[in-house]
Simulated assay, not measured.
Amino acid sequence: MEAVMACWELEKSLQSLTGVSPGEGTGATMSDDDEEQVVTLTCLMVVSMFQTGYKEKIVDIREEIPRKRRAGKLPGDTTSLLKAWWQSHSKWPYPTEEDKARLVQETGLQLKQINNWFINQRKRNWHSNPSSSTSVKSKRKR
């Protein structure tokens, strides 16, 4: 609908500039300079209409972008629930299916997200056998 209105406005403006209705011909021709002026004015009008019509929408989108959370980053309250479970089970941080179901309920996350969080957490922060992890690190340095 906005496009139709924009075209209608352009049509009216062209009519006022040229004095000719669409489909109506006077037999007169415009000089190249006149034609260039009409094209320039038409382009300026289109840009102006675009800017005024969509300016508010562009501003709204720019304000909304920072509000969206980064993909992959869970909300703080959710992570604190997961970390609390992690801390209380630090010796063996493998939740049972019941634990996972409860965490899904409490956090609002999907089961896959819970599973991935624990996989990543174990990779980053847990070593079942500290001596084997240091030997792996020392092998990498050589």
Rank of each mutant, 00 (worst) to 15 (best):
S133W: 06
K141Q: 11
W92L: 08
M49T: 03
K68R: 15
A101M: 05
G108L: 00
E11V: 12
Q15V: 06
Q105C: 02
S21W: 05
I114M: 04
Y54N: 04
S88L: 12
E98T: 03
L82G: 01
S135K: 02
S135G: 01
Q105K: 09
L81C: 12
M1S: 12
E24L: 11
P22E: 02
M30R: 09
K83Y: 14
L14N: 05
N129G: 02
L103N: 08
Q113P: 03
T40Q: 14
W126F: 05
E64A: 05
D60Q: 15
S31L: 00
S31F: 02
E2I: 09
N115K: 14
L44C: 14
V104K: 06
L14I: 00
I61A: 09
W92R: 14
S132W: 08
K139A: 10
K141L: 13
L109C: 09
I58T: 03
I65T: 02
I61S: 01
V20D: 11
P75V: 03
E98W: 07
R69Q: 14
F50G: 14
E97T: 06
M5W: 06
M30D: 07
R70T: 12
D77T: 09
R124D: 13
R142H: 11
P22V: 01
G76Q: 15
L81R: 07
I114C: 00
G72R: 02
V20T: 12
T78D: 01
P95M: 04
M45V: 09
T78M: 04
F50R: 06
G27E: 14
M30F: 00
T96Q: 05
D60K: 15
S135D: 06
V59A: 15
A84I: 08
D33N: 05
K91W: 04
P66E: 07
A3G: 12
V20F: 07
G108H: 07
V59D: 02
N115G: 13
M45C: 10
R122F: 00
Q37C: 07
G23W: 02
R69T: 11
Q113K: 03
V59N: 08
N129P: 04
P75G: 04
C7P: 09
S88K: 09
K100H: 00
L111A: 15
Q15H: 14
L111W: 08
M1Q: 11
E98D: 10
D34P: 02
S16G: 03
S21R: 10
W117T: 13
K83I: 06
E64Q: 05
L17R: 05
N125A: 14
V4I: 12
P66Q: 04
E2H: 04
T79N: 09
E64G: 03
A3M: 12
R122P: 15
K12Y: 02
T40E: 11
A28L: 09
S48L: 11
Q37P: 00
F50V: 10
M1H: 13
K139Y: 14
G53P: 01
K83G: 11
K91H: 04
N125I: 13
R142T: 07
H89C: 08
T26V: 03
